[in-house]
């Protein structure tokens, strides 16, 4: 990371056309899924508290598409994008959100607690910051096993003000474990802007005192996220310690579906619409010759078709068995 702590990197990297295409596919799958989710939630087809990440897809795509199934990801309450990008099946994810037996957690976890061990998605936690030390422990386990499997944990800028953040980053640094803390700084901690929480503008500024290398990138530029995370991943895999990557982005929807959003500034939302990560990649793809507009539209259409298939799959799934609480509260 060249020690550029806190430096906002401008997009400048380039990509293989196949990788670029895969990133667009990933972002469209997340976007189409969550756009469909909103009416499903409003009609109570989706049962519980639901947090959308519309506008933030570049971070999930740029990070998770570079990880294998043996590289663990921990997510937070805004988990759908991370899960889809990490390989969780869309139909099973939607069935989980609808509380159905074919959900990836048989309907016991829901939107905030998605787990899919086969894809290295060890789970999402619903309490802000609660997942951070899990990643330190999993990365310590990598070191004990003697492999170099990197662990990634996503957190929001709101979590950085919690004590658990400092404790976890300190321990990761002290023990030099291969963990990457990926901050999605979307400017809001739940319902209030970052300025109401702290005078520290950049989360990456909080890493240097712990001797953790950190960088801030434009989190709405998927090419840049992909490049920056690729560097960090290589360094962490090589045993060069923990890293923190802050991705500046913007949550285009409320904190949760149904959030009245009175705290949001309309002009900000407008300006961020131009920075939408999908639109930017489509424009960039045409310029770079990665894919034409028709190809981009076909990718969108395929994603929306996949979502409809997921809706059909999940809707056909029964509700879970009432024996599950007695069977699964404890491991036997």
């Amino acid at each position: 990371m060249a020690g550029e702590n806190g430096a906002l990197r401008q997009g400048g990297g380039t990509l293989d056309a196949n990788v670029a295409r895969h990133l667009l596919v990933t972002m469209w799958r997340i976007r189409a899924f969550e756009e469909r989710l909103e009416p499903l939630k409003r009609s109570s087809t989706v049962h519980g508290l639901t947090h959308l990440s519309i506008g933030q897809e570049a971070v999930a795509a740029g990070v998770c598409t570079q990880l294998g199934n043996d590289e663990i990801v921990y997510s937070n309450h805004r988990a759908h994008g991370h899960a889809l990008a990490k390989g969780v099946d869309m139909g099973r994810l939607l069935a989980e959100l609808m509380g159905r037996a074919d959900g990836c957690c048989r309907g016991l976890g829901g939107s905030m607690h998605v787990v899919d061990v086969a894809h290295g998605f060890f789970g999402a936690t619903g309490v802000v910051g609660g997942n951070l030390p899990f990643a330190v422990g999993a990365a310590f386990a990598s070191r004990l096993r003697g492999d170099s499997a990197v662990v990634v944990v996503f957190f929001g800028d709101g979590a950085a003000q919690a004590g658990i953040f400092a404790e976890s980053v300190n321990l990761a640094s002290l023990w030099q474990v291969p963990v990457v803390f990926v901050c999605e700084n979307n400017g809001f901690a739940e319902f209030t802007p970052r300025s109401a929480h702290t005078r520290v503008e950049r989360v990456s500024d909080l890493a240097a005192p712990f001797h953790v290398t950190a960088a801030t990138v434009d989190g709405n530029d998927v090419v840049e996220v992909h490049r920056a995370f690729g560097e960090v991943l290589a360094s962490a895999s090589a045993g060069k310690g923990p890293f923190l990557l802050e991705c500046l982005t913007h949550r285009r929807s409320g904190h949760y579906v149904g959030d009245p959003g009175g705290y949001r500034v309309a002009s900000d939302d407008e300006s961020w619409r131009d920075k939408d990560p999908i639109g930017r990649l489509v424009r960039r793809g045409a310029t770079e010759g990665w894919f034409g507009e028709d190809a981009a539209r076909a990718i969108e259409a395929a994603a929306r078709d996949e979502v409809e298939a997921a809706v059909a799959f999940a809707s056909a799934s029964p509700f879970p068995d009432l024996t599950l609480p007695a069977d699964l509260t404890y491991a036997r």
Binding site: V136, G137, A138, A141, S168, N170
Partner: peptide
């Protein structure tokens, strides 16, 4: 020292770290 480790006065991170290590196959 790989298996027996002193931790900082960080109960939250200690227990959370142990949880992560346990999920990854160890028995802390």
């Amino acid at each position: 020292p790989a298996r027996v480790r002193v931790t900082p006065i960080s109960e939250t991170a200690e227990i959370g770290m142990a949880t992560g290590a346990a999920m990854a196959g160890f028995r802390p």
